[in-house]
Amino acid sequence: MTKSAAVVNYGPEKGSVEIRELAKPSIGDEDVLLEMVNAGVCGSDLHQWTSDHSWPVNYPVVLGHEFAGVIAEVGSRVTGWKEGDRVVSETAAVIDANNPMTKRGLYNLDPTRKGFGYGVNGAMTRYVRVPARCLHKVPDQLPFEQACLTEPCCVAYSAVVENTHIKPGDRVVVLGPGTIGILCAAMARLCGAEVAIVGLEADRYRLNIAKQYGCEAIIGDATSWALERDGLGADCVIDAAGASITLQTALQLVRPNGTITKVGWGRQPLGFSLDPLVQKNITLQGSFSHNWPMWERVLALLASGQLDVKPIIGGVWPISEWHTAFEKMHKGEVVKSVLRPD
């Protein structure tokens, strides 16, 4: 029986992640067996490792929902795919076909949805079972190391393009220079916006990476930048920080009749008044996940080079060195760590 090393989150306690040897999974008639080539480490993987996440997890579970690879086996009822195809996979591993959101094509918002890496086994291992409906073809010119980051790019596309409708000439502040924040900033730049990305002193390295996307990098208070044009504030604030309190900062920075889009998770309770939301007539928009057409658009952007993820890739580590890859992201020494099978 073929066994492979896997990065497993085995319990809710802090630090409950270890390497385990797992058998190659069997697949159903409508699945493929994907041999992973590269998997990105997401902030949510780190949150499960440090046990400060706010979503239910089916322990034990293999981490990893950002991945690209090659089809190794094809289920008996799968059409349009064959062994050897280069693919990426969406994250909605389990959905209810009869849910009203799914019927509208918004299966990412199906409340019963289960994703890779928390609901079912993810891709930080050699083989992962994937429903064929989740697959997208990876263009030949796009390396797997970059293709595995399609998912966070789709998170940014969903937040900036689909949910916020950024327009050329908009002045946009992005809070939080993690992977999603930097990609949101890059996506806003593609939309023609002026963009400032804001972080702390400890984020200096990641803010310097954001500069490569043509963004203004700000440590601390972004008020003067937000007010620079006409004294009223930014047209939009994208809150990509992993905290709740940054919403208060967003309310201060956004202009009257502006928009705040919250894409970062933060389980802390709010300890401030939302009156400015009313007084300034602000639109507050949540943004979660993505769906099929967004993946196709993002893959086209990556393949054409219009969206370049190379600056955010801090290194590629074998699965056996997962802890190093996690630590470097957690400490802010790299923006994005990528894993590969041993």
Rank of each mutant, 00 (worst) to 15 (best):
E151G: 10
C153S: 08
C153L: 01
C153I: 00
C153D: 02
C154R: 08
A156V: 01
A159Q: 09
V160N: 04
E162H: 08
K167R: 10
K167D: 00
P168C: 00
G169F: 05
D170F: 04
D170Y: 03
R171Q: 14
R171V: 06
R171I: 04
V172G: 06
V172N: 05
V173C: 13
V174R: 02
L175E: 09
L175Y: 03
L175D: 09
L175W: 07
G176N: 06
G176R: 02
P177T: 11
P177D: 14
I182D: 11
L183A: 12
C184P: 07
C184I: 04
A188E: 03
R189A: 10
R189N: 11
C191L: 00
C191E: 07
A193E: 06
A193Q: 04
E194Q: 14
V195A: 14
V195L: 12
V195Y: 04
V195Q: 10
L200P: 00
A202E: 08
A202Q: 06
D203Q: 11
Y205G: 15
R206K: 15
R206D: 14
L207K: 14
L207G: 12
A210C: 10
K211D: 10
Q212D: 11
G214D: 09
E216G: 06
E216S: 12
A217W: 11
I218G: 03
D221A: 09
A222H: 07
A222N: 06
T223L: 05
T223I: 01
S224N: 14
W225C: 13
A226G: 03
A226K: 03
A226T: 01
L227T: 13
E228H: 11
R229H: 13
D230P: 05
G233I: 00
C236H: 01
V237C: 02
I238V: 04
A241I: 07
A241G: 11
G242M: 13
S244T: 06
S244R: 09
T246V: 03
A250D: 08
L251I: 02
L251N: 07
L251V: 03
L251S: 06
Q252M: 04
Q252E: 06
V254F: 00
R255H: 10
R255S: 13
P256C: 05
P256K: 09
N257H: 14
T259M: 04
I260H: 08
